[in-house]
Design a protein around this nucleic acid. Structure first.
Lengths: 229, 229
DNA sequence: AACCTTCCTTGACCTGAATCAAGTTTTCAT
DNA sequence: ATGAAAACTTGATTCAGGTCAAGGAAGGTT
């Protein structure tokens, strides 16, 4: 029915306007974007795209989380990035007009908004403020990647975990306690290690009184020592 | 003398116009840029900036090479990027208005062109084509970082070296032979390993007939096996 | 609630690569 | 050209962490 359709459009407009990328867009362009974008729903662990796929458009997370990752020939996985609610992904490939450089898969279930590429490219070229928004976003990601490279190369696994916990503490604005927002196995893949090693380190930190493990909730008992890793 | 000054200005204009970043700039802006920029000369291994320094401007390589790197607490070094002739660096920090996230040092001697930050920022905001140029550049770097993360985490050192040799072969447009453009120790730091390990792997590949080592020149005898790493 | 599946933990073992040490070669500056 | 310094190689040793294996906990589904 028509009512439903219009409600849906309003919804999409909300989702689009409420993003770093499209902040400051004109009503016309907003309507156009809402018109060409569409919602896709994904079952648990379903793939969004694969490395090498043509980048015919990019996505924005509405519900759930999406991991961007690379696979080794032996099947080991390295997560490059995990995108949460509201975050766009895949724009780099679209902007470059090149295939996706990595795989994307939903963690758990998810709902995404899809934007066809050509229209987006036109928009970026026509609208300098979008280009500037993208620059800001890309800059952030370059920084994040730089730290990831630093950690992978210069820190051992305990240090990487410590950094991540402190990062979560910052993000969740809680100095005493953090909640893991992804399964431990996925965290291992994000930190560039195996689930076994990660588990051992959790246990060790727990025994040494640096943290207190309670399932997905982790109390940071000794920030001093966490920062020293 | 005045003659010299004007010749210098023309020189700078040349250097600026001849860059991906400022392609398509107006003559006025070019003149302005040439006016505010200035050349800096560096002795062998001299630092350009340190991690944490305020990013008061960015640079473009005129002569030599510049390495961007992180240091671990124990003093180990991981090179994030090496910039060669013509390439700009430091714009991310300037654009973000945040401190430099890593150190920059000249490899050998070098000559750089320095652009003060505020003027550059104004230019980016005023000139959409520069913003688009930057987007293209940042996109490339994001891709490179992604591969670097992939290699560090999913490949062992021989594989990383193999990839690098093939990359050089591509870059130098020579399928049979590549020339190392940086010292082996620096290459080790770029690949995230120690000089000792790198040396051993070179020797091994040489013995196994995969490559032939002749100082800085390396013949790729068996691309098949290099690609299989 | 009971099932099945997925996720997590712990143990035993093994290997890639870092580190320390010492010698050799190359490169640079005078 | 020549000595000093830096860069590279090779050997011996150590260890972080990956892999294989198997048991235990948790979570979603009927």
């Amino acid at each position: 029915m028509k009512k439903n359709y219009e409600k849906n459009m309003e919804n999409k407009k909300q989702l689009i306007a409420n993003s770093i990328l499209f902040a400051g867009i004109s009503p016309d362009q907003l309507a156009e974007l809402a018109d060409i974008s569409h919602v896709k729903t994904y079952g648990r662990g379903e793939s969004v795209f694969f490395e090498g796929d043509a980048a015919d458009g990019f996505y924005k997370v509405i519900e759930g989380k999406v991991k961007i990752f690379k696979l080794s020939m032996e099947g080991r996985e390295q997560i490059l990035h995990i995108f949460g609610k509201g975050e766009p992904f895949g724009e780099v490939a679209v902007f470059q007009g090149r295939p996706f450089p990595a795989n994307a898969t939903v963690l758990g279930k998810g709902k995404l908004l899809f934007f066809p590429g050509p229209e987006f490219i036109r928009l970026v070229h026509a609208n300098p403020s979008i280009a500037l928004n993208m620059l800001a976003m890309f800059s952030m990601r370059l920084r994040r990647f730089a730290t990831q490279i630093e950690h992978l190369s210069l820190k051992e696994v305990p240090g990487r975990l410590a950094s991540h916990l402190l990062y979560l503490s910052e993000e969740q604005r809680n100095r005493d306690q953090v909640t893991l927002d992804i399964p431990k196995g996925q965290l291992a893949s994000l930190l560039g290690t195996s689930p076994e090693t990660l588990s051992r380190i959790f246990t060790k930190m727990n025994e040494e009184g640096i943290i207190r493990l309670q399932g997905k909730v982790i109390s940071l008992l000794d920030r001093e020592r966490l920062e020293a890793f």
